[in-house]
Nucleic acid binder design. Structure first.
Lengths: 197, 197
DNA sequence: GCGGAAATTGAGTGGACACTCCAATATGTA
DNA sequence: TACATATTGGAGTGTCCACTCAATTTCCGC
């Protein structure tokens, strides 16, 4: 299951539109039914496209799936523009919003992490993005509490992200679960947890 | 995909032994390759058994898979005998040991939680066992810090378990990750985190 | 609007899959 | 030991899957 794959390229407007329809269908199926719900027939039915059209635009089924997967990995992080300036509260808010928002991408991301448990290629990708995120959280910790050693800040960041991930899983399985209420408890002072976002 | 399924029953010794070999093979495959790595051929090859023998003992492939899955769900909790008496440190230790131990069951459990994101039947099972665990952690919190309100104790328990789950995922993807070092930080006083288990 | 490239269709292909069937054999019991 | 029944292997079955292909239509720069 190669992660990088060169597919055919769309050159005309209709081709690009079809490509988008296919990706939207794949995204939806992946989020709703998981990886085993994504069959070529399901994709092409959902996208209203013949199998031939699919292969005119993608090298394989996995090609389309990975496109969506890459998207999901990247989407976990709030706009990279703000990196280096955002507060812990901002970061936690963004993570909670990502998990509890209506986009199907969060579900895909967590499923993906689950697959990382058996697929080393996926594990590597997920871990890489995880480390980037830990860095960003650690920076925010240190900005907020300058007395922390870098090691201590990173430990807290790791813990915070672990908790956010765990809470996110519960939230996605149990719609009645109030993730935000739990997540704010992770912030340094309990005073901060009174914030009403 | 029915969760409860009645399979044929082994009556002779050899049948019971074969049954165990099949379950061991299923457990190993599920942990190592994930659900899509568990094919009938893989199971029967691994267990050194013909397909006919398999169906003499199990109603379907899923029958065997669910047997293992049930086992994984139950195995997350340390010996139920101790419920009501164990300290937070004990519970955290047990969870870390479960995740980082050599048994394949932890990997299966986390994969399963991932599948819960798209399969409501699985989600229900996972959530049920999760709630039981939260109760047990909340009890331990209250025993350790009697001044906590029950709601506060439960919130802390939920947070703690979320973090343990998240850290467990990282630990299973990254063998160099020191889960215990991070997990002890979750304990109430930083003094407690100096314990050397 | 002409022409060549791109896009589209869907029946067809080969392979993997879960599961069946049954003759041959092993097992426990009286 | 003899019998009934449990267990065994593995070739065979139907289904579903990803993917191909050749014929046809659509697109768009000129």
């Amino acid at each position: 299951m190669a992660f990088v794959e060169e597919g055919p390229v769309a050159r005309y407007r209709v081709g690009l539109e079809t490509r988008e329809r296919i990706l939207a269908a794949t995204r939806r199926l992946l989020s709703e039914f998981g990886i085993e719900g994504v069959t070529l027939k399901a994709i092409t039915d959902q996208a209203r496209v013949g199998a031939g059209s699919f292969y005119n635009l993608f090298a394989s089924k996995d090609d389309a799936v990975f496109e969506v997967v890459r998207e999901a990995i990247d989407a976990v992080d709030p706009d990279p523009a703000g990196a280096g300036t955002d507060s812990l509260g901002d970061l936690v808010d963004a993570f909670v919003a990502f998990m509890t928002g209506s986009s199907p991408i969060a579900r895909i991301y967590l499923q993906l992490a689950g697959r990382g448990l058996t697929d080393p290629a996926i594990a590597a990708r997920v871990l890489r993005s995880h480390r980037r995120r830990v860095e960003r959280f650690a920076d925010a910790w240190q900005r907020e509490q300058p007395e922390l050693t870098p090691e201590e800040a990173e430990r807290r960041a790791e813990l915070m992200l672990g908790a956010l991930t765990g809470l996110g899983m519960t939230a996605l399985m149990d719609p009645t679960f109030d993730m935000r209420r739990h997540a704010v408890e992770l912030l340094p002072t309990s005073a901060a947890s009174v914030r009403r976002p």
